[in-house]
């Protein structure tokens, strides 16, 4: 039984120009101790989905479908009840550590608050937990850090504080939304290493949202590729990189700057992602897809179907042989060589 099961999630924002469906029928599940990566470009709905799970969407948004976290059904749960789960059962780490901590409160105050919102402990105990939390994310001299303000810490340190804060109440589900995007490369490596270390210690299910396939390859077990509000491909991480199935995934893999061969032109996906206000009919990737056929441009969109003998699912009209042949060109070097 998966810890988190999302079924047919639809998140719609009311705007002045009409409704925008940011998440359009997404289903996925994560087990405890597992890291699910959700990959996609800006505007693909990955952040809207994580905020739907957290119940942190503005009032202009409506969420339909089902989000089952353990014994709790989160869709339709009153906000007061949802609040008791936030920060305890499910915690979140955000992209920009520079702006995600309150600038006028000390680190200690913010950590202790996180503890005392969910645990009936004295200030002294909350403090001890905060110190332990900072130590767990390898922050040197944690006692002294409690007295500092966020602006006195570097970006990497602040992200460690954010992670410590998220883990203080031992959540069962941790959502990390682009946790390393705002960081320098070597700091990103530190944070990724920390996350790898922590995943074995905290027995939580982790949903990692990112645009970077490299980050996915480093820390995830399962991957879901999102495009324009829908999941186009879902597979185990090894499977995805060895036998990518969807043309959009191929494009993402090919446009990674690190893996192309010198002298060869970078593979590019033409155009830019569609507006969710007015999404194209049929497969939403069809207008940018080099292999699109007539059937791709007409409704209904291709459904997620199982790829034989791999456990992966893909939403694409191309036949299995073509996908296998084309996909091999973009597979990670080890398997294709």
């Amino acid at each position: 039984m998966a810890l988190l099961t999302v079924k047919n999630l639809r998140t719609t924002f009311r705007t002045d120009d009409g409704p925008v469906c940011a998440v359009d029928g997404v289903s996925l599940s994560v087990d405890a101790g597992q890291v699910l990566g959700i990959v996609g470009e800006s505007g693909c709905g990955k952040s809207a989905m994580s905020l739907s799970i957290m119940g942190l969407l503005p009032t202009s948004a409506t969420v339909e479908g089902s989000i089952q976290l353990g014994e709790h059904q989160l869709v339709g749960m009153p906000n007061s009840e949802l609040r008791t789960l936030r920060g305890s059962e499910v915690a979140m780490i955000f992209q920009d550590p520079m702006t995600s901590l309150n600038p006028v409160m000390t680190i200690g105050w913010q950590l202790e608050e996180a503890v005392r919102l969910h645990q009936k402990v004295s200030r002294r105990e909350a403090r001890a937990l905060a110190v332990a939390g900072l130590a767990a994310v390898a922050i040197p001299s944690p006692e002294e850090r409690l007295k500092t303000y966020p602006h006195e810490l570097s970006g990497g340190m602040r992200q460690r504080v954010m992670i410590a804060m998220a883990l203080l109440n031992r959540p069962r589900l941790l959502i990390a939304d682009e946790p390393t995007t705002a960081l320098d490369v070597t700091t990103q490596a530190q944070i990724l290493e920390l996350m790898r270390d922590l995943r074995s210690e905290v027995d939580a299910a982790i949903v990692l949202i990112t645009h970077d396939l490299g980050v996915v390859a480093e820390v995830c077990d399962e991957v879901a590729v999102m495009y324009a509000g829908r999941i186009v491909e879902r597979a185990s991480v090894d499977e995805l990189f060895a036998r990518p199935q969807h043309p959009y995934t191929w494009g993402l893999l090919a446009s990674l700057p690190g893996r192309n061969r010198a002298g060869e032109r970078l593979h590019q996906i033409v155009g830019s992602p569609p507006s969710l206000m007015n999404p194209p009919a049929g497969c939403r990737f069809a207008p940018r897809c080099a292999m699109a056929m007539d059937v791709c441009r007409a409704d209904p969109a291709p459904a997620l179907t199982e790829v034989a003998a791999s456990g992966a699912v893909v939403a694409c009209h191309l036949d299995a042989a073509t996908r296998a042949r084309e996909g091999a060109r973009f597979a990670s070097s080890e398997d294709s060589a």
Partner: peptide, 9 residues
């Protein structure tokens, strides 16, 4: 430091 887009590697 840069993550490698190849899980086995």
């Amino acid at each position: 430091a840069r993550p490698i887009a190849d899980p086995k590697l």
